[in-house]
Design a binder for these strands. Sequence first.
DNA 1: AATTATATGTCATCCGGTTGACATGTGAAA
DNA 2: TTTCACATGTCAACCGGATGACATATAATT
Lengths: 321, 321
Amino acid sequence: MKPKISDVAKVAGVSPTTVSRVLNNRGYIGEKTRKKVEEAMKQLNYFPNDVARSLFIKKTFLIGVIFPTTTNPFYGQLIFHIENIAASLGYKILLCNSQGQEDKERSYLRMLQRNQVDGIIAGAHNRGVKEYDIPTLPVVGVDRYLSGNIPVVSSDNYDGGRQATQLLINKGCENIIHINGPILLETPANLRRKAYEDVMRDNQLTPITYETEGNNQAVIKQLFDENPQVDSIFASDDLIASAVMREAKIRKRNIPSDFKVIGYDGTETTRLLLPELSTIQQPIREIAEKTIEILIKEINEEGDSQMETILPVRLIEGETT
Amino acid sequence: MKPKISDVAKVAGVSPTTVSRVLNNRGYIGEKTRKKVEEAMKQLNYFPNDVARSLFIKKTFLIGVIFPTTTNPFYGQLIFHIENIAASLGYKILLCNSQGQEDKERSYLRMLQRNQVDGIIAGAHNRGVKEYDIPTLPVVGVDRYLSGNIPVVSSDNYDGGRQATQLLINKGCENIIHINGPILLETPANLRRKAYEDVMRDNQLTPITYETEGNNQAVIKQLFDENPQVDSIFASDDLIASAVMREAKIRKRNIPSDFKVIGYDGTETTRLLLPELSTIQQPIREIAEKTIEILIKEINEEGDSQMETILPVRLIEGETT
DNA sequence: AATTATATGTCATCCGGTTGACATGTGAAA
DNA sequence: TTTCACATGTCAACCGGATGACATATAATT
């Protein structure tokens, strides 16, 4: 059986209270007894039981993290930073891949509450999950409006969309089409599209948008078929941009002379695998930092943070524009 | 304050024991009381406290997962599947990104033990962390030997290395160079290299291997400089393969006519971003399934599973070979 | 009428650690 | 000599829920 505080006390020849004092640095402890206790812990290979501790102090140092999937390089990188920063602050991550399914998201929320997490970071992509409104449980959204009174951290999607569109226009494109994933009205990411439409109209151009969910390739084929005159595409993420490049090559469109593509996200993985792709890079690390900062402030009840945090994006000009 | 069982009992007009009986489906419960209790739980927004429950039943349904980083597409995808399968079995994931640092790995191990995880899945890349030998705590390694008595699950790295090398030879290559990440003697992944060397020698060819850690591009440049006659490269993962392709293009080597590349892993992300790359695809989902299967068997003490599980890989011939 | 399966309540104990109250015993400073 | 900071022990209560023992009561069977 695992050793407990009383076992350590026995071996060290002290009282359980003294062991607890050593563990928590409370009250007076003599140097020799502290040594004795520490040696006893080592000898028994004792680890304090954080479950018992959490029960009493009513704090678990657990943060629930809900995103669609770590398979996606953007979320993978974001979660990496979140976990990393959280760990440096003594918090641990309970990972949830909601896969964009509302029911999963709901059941994860229940699970996290049963596990008494101190807070939740959510960037899943479902609408209508109102259960996020949990009084007494701090929640922060990433790139997603979860509810009226939940803070959101995102990058400057409008500016990103603007820069991408403007770049294509500056390069002389006139038939620019936007393609994005499933529309999520409550998502700041939709501002990318809004910016695209605004910039297009400001330049007397007609915005055309295609949506894809899952099967990118089919939608892209359709897009090319229906718009033979298309000279450039602004894709709402790099994965879609990559699929566009692929289709363009099949159609013998020469990039960038004949046809231009710009993506969105600029993750480490994309930069490694597709360095030539022009893209709008999100400040993933900074998003993670800000998100945790706000969440922990909420957890510690240190006044309310601002409801919306918008971080700057960066245009990376590659060889596809 | 959060409602507890006794609050539910009061509202439902029953005893706490009865609520617990409803919660755990034990003993006799009448239909009407069950309804009453369930309604009271709904009304109070009651969630059972799993921390308290875990303390008593001495089981947390938590699995600690230690890998270098979710940023890497292979680990990102593997962790996705692990979490996914675990969730379907009622287990939750405590995520740890060790970043290949021994000290982090050690402190994560301590953290996981304090949190009373039921088991650990580790695929980090450090040698010398002997702390994995924890009696009473089930551990399974992925693509990594952690200790003599810890089961490992991996894909058939030797066969993958063999197939990759053989393919290049079949295509007429003679100056094939292998490039891999940091050497880890205790890692089954090293079998890729071993297979490469064996196949080369079997074909009267001289194996040459380069190692890279972190700065791929510099090592690759050096490789090309020192071996102008190189006609193909077998990279130990797709990210390195991508960097090789990039350098080859800079050096005006035409792929695949003049120069061939084959990678390793074949993750979803790589397939999307670099579909033309030939690669050896690992059965990531199956690795996750088998790993959890073995871990849970260990947790439930259902006899010992086999110490080494090797799953088949698949050659994907793209346009780079 | 006796038996039994069903239904619910009371009560105490346990899980492992934390904490406050209080007692006791040093040795050093006032 | 008194006072006090330092050091450690004992004890009980508590965190929220699980569980076993035992009592009681109703309704259905025999």
